[in-house]
Nucleic acid binder design. Structure first.
Length: 266
DNA sequence: AGGTCTGTTCAGCT
DNA sequence: TAGCTGAACAGACC
């Protein structure tokens, strides 16, 4: 499930292997993935050009093209990944692809078909990147409203890049219950949450993805809290399946006993 | 073999 | 308004 760390790794992959290669053809025939573009529209805009720079904010990534061409935006959706120089996937799982003049290709491989490819993507609805958001902006944007803090973190217009697993891992590290009302967190708690978010994001990016998080590893196996051994709570928060430790992430205010956001992951 | 679950985004509702 | 619900996608899982 691509969240910010997976997208950052995908961006780095394009940076490493996708720049400066002449685009000879574009497979943009999936009108759903390429909406609102008609088939051939992205192709016309990019054939003959090369990618020159890569960017990412949250889960969105985009690439500049040379000669004054448009940017190409890619979104991995829920199951997408970027593959380089592999033969086309069976069953048309490659929803979009750049075919290079050197014979290689860049494909958006996505069984679920929830990824997107678009020219000049609209980034105006995204908040600041979750990995680099500053203290004051984080306090202001996250620490308000009546919605549960987890739902606030998942809102891409508040802070960009947090998905379900990274939200659970972050709240666990910060010792904050996912059900706390966002506007009721004080500055100390918000700062602790931001540090936990940055650390969880950095660790996950380094280790290969959000599934490497300490809480997340045991989550599916229904193991107890990796820190204190308590049985994890499970409930729907913000419309998403949520796990948390009832002892270290208490329902109201108190600072947790042991584990805090300043601690690094295993 | 069918029913449930998965997670992100977005439209539509209150 | 802000927050919530369900649709869309299609495969994984039991």
């Amino acid at each position: 499930m691509p969240e910010l760390p997976e997208v950052e790794r995908a961006r780095a992959l394009v940076e490493q292997r996708g720049l400066g290669r002449v685009i000879e053809d574009v497979e943009d025939g999936d009108a759903y993935v390429c909406r609102p573009h008609a088939p051939g529209e992205i192709r016309s805009a990019l054939v003959g050009r090369s990618l020159t720079r890569t960017h990412r904010r949250g889960k969105a990534m985009w690439f500049e093209s040379d000669g004054g061409g448009p940017d190409l935006g890619l979104h991995l959706g829920m199951a997408g990944r970027i593959v380089f120089d592999e033969p086309p996937a069976p069953r048309s799982w490659d929803r979009f692809a750049l075919v290079f003049a050197d014979g290689g290709r860049l494909a958006l491989r996505d069984k679920r078909r929830l990824g997107r490819a678009v020219l000049d993507p609209d980034l105006s609805t995204l908040g600041p990147d979750a990995g680099t958001v500053g203290r004051d902006a984080f306090r202001r944007r996250v620490g308000r409203g009546t919605t549960p803090i987890k739902a606030r973190l998942l809102d891409q217009s508040v802070v960009a890049g947090v998905g379900n697993l990274l939200a659970d891992e972050t709240l666990w590290r910060a010792g904050l219950s996912p059900r706390r009302e966002a506007g009721n967190l004080d500055d100390e708690e918000l700062d602790r949450l931001r540090r936990a978010l940055r650390a969880a994001t950095r660790d996950a990016t380094r280790k290969g993805g959000v599934h490497t998080g300490r809480l997340i590893v045991g989550r599916k196996r229904r193991e107890p809290c990796p820190s204190c051994g308590a049985t994890l709570e499970r409930a729907t928060v913000g419309g998403r399946t949520t796990f948390w430790c009832p002892l270290e992430q208490p329902a109201t205010g108190a600072v947790p006993s042991g584990y805090a956001g300043t601690q690094s992951a295993a």
